[in-house]
Design a protein around this nucleic acid. Structure first.
Lengths: 238, 238
DNA sequence: CGGCGCATTGACCTTCATCAATATGCGTGG
DNA sequence: CCACGCATATTGATGAAGGTCAATGCGCCG
């Protein structure tokens, strides 16, 4: 399942077979993690970063009064906490939303990899910058889009990202309860429920206990004013 | 004024005098830019990154219907579009909020710098990851904090960041109109006005035509549930 | 079968947006 | 120096989006 990760890299930049082999060499065998497991805690000192091989994970921050914001959702192929390589400690938690398979890549191996292959260093830097671009898009969503628009934008983004790594993108298991969607989109579970019903009635999207089915992608894109350029689908080769 | 930039780096990681000299060597003389100038346009191919020597800038994204989200605010010492080094094109614009002094550092020089000083490469990678952490905090703000809490959190963040680079942090010129504050915080100019009045009446903050004066920092922190850990003020040395 | 987490729905309420009018400061040209 | 014009700020009245509270339903699992 490291294939998804390589696909994601290759989608933006060509990889030589030596580079690809060098990456494969530092990724240990995957291990399984059950859903709803917190695998990185805020503040914890990190010695490795998590490559998500299979399943869905998220990162989130909590406020003192218990309010939670999910800041990002991750799918297979994502290097979920690669930013931990330079930050050493994260200011947020990371948890699984579905059962997952992950590979824990020691930071020492990453350091050796990029010292030997400086271009891969830039590609992985790109990768964390791409994550940041998605954070900015979510800022845009949270600040400016309506509730329905935010939901639509989220599913448009996931659709594209799943496609990039070669996974089924029209119907997929996101594993999120409506309450978790609410924490992602800055709304209440009740309003998520009503908005999902609205999207279902408009024949745009079906979402039932974690299973998403995109019915009308163009409709969703239009509702969200979705502009995929923030996903950097065709940058210039480094 | 490159001093602010070095101060920001040193605040998180020690710099050897050779590393510092290497950085100084690639920063060209500053030039002035008037306020309200857009210095990077979305989609434009970049050959250099902008080091902000003096003044305040912001980055923003627009929605099709004209709604704007300011995704980040930058002060002296920030490498405003360092992420352009790996992304090549940005999905947002960058503009000045006050009159500024900037140095445009060619990407070719950055590449040579980090090839010769790999540790500096990791420090600059850290730097873009720190930016991303602020984006995540803004997601938290936009998604979960009240209007007053968002305003308070913004000024708490700026206070700390100004202090880090050795600038006056209790009273400073932010150069933002209430309308621009509104675009940063996902609210309307009218509501920004009312909320600022509220903060003034509570003796927490004065804000008049771009001039901010923090009256009660602890009060603001408490209102925002501000937790500065996301600013990574004392990470482990790399 | 009973319990539990999650989803669904209704009634009501708060926060913030919208619309609109007026005010205030500031730069410019006469 | 003053008058004008423009951008920004301020305030009030009203409305809509979404939050809160609470009850019921549904599916799943032991």
């Amino acid at each position: 399942m490291i294939a998804a990760h390589l696909a994601k890299l290759r989608f933006r930049h060509p990889l030589s077979s030596e580079e690809e082999a060098a990456i494969r060499a530092i990724v240990p065998p995957g291990k399984r993690v059950a859903r709803n497991s917190t695998i990185v805690h805020e503040g914890e000192l990190l010695e490795a970063s998590t490559l998500l091989l299979e399943g869905v994970m998220c990162r989130f921050k909590d406020l003192a009064d218990g309010k939670r914001q999910i800041t990002q959702i991750h799918i297979a192929g994502d290097f979920v906490d690669l930013h931990g390589f330079t930050l050493k400690r994260l200011e947020h938690d990371v948890m699984t939303l579905t059962d997952c398979a992950v590979a824990l890549v020691p930071h020492e191996h990453i350091r050796q990899l990029i010292e030997q292959w400086p271009r891969l260093g830039r590609l992985y830097w790109f990768s964390t910058n791409l994550d940041a671009s998605m954070n900015r898009e979510w800022e845009l969503s949270l600040g400016q889009r309506s509730a329905a628009g935010r939901l639509a934008a989220l599913f448009c983004e996931l659709q594209v990202r799943l496609q990039v790594v070669g996974l089924e993108s029209a119907r997929f298991n996101l594993g999120m309860s409506q309450s978790q969607l609410a924490d992602s989109l800055g709304m209440t579970p009740v309003h998520v429920n009503r908005t999902l019903r609205h999207l279902r009635e408009q024949r745009l999207l079906n979402y039932q206990r974690g299973e998403a089915q995109i019915v009308d992608l163009e409709g969703l894109k239009s509702l969200a004013s979705f502009d995929e350029r923030y996903l950097y689908l065709d940058p210039d080769p480094l």
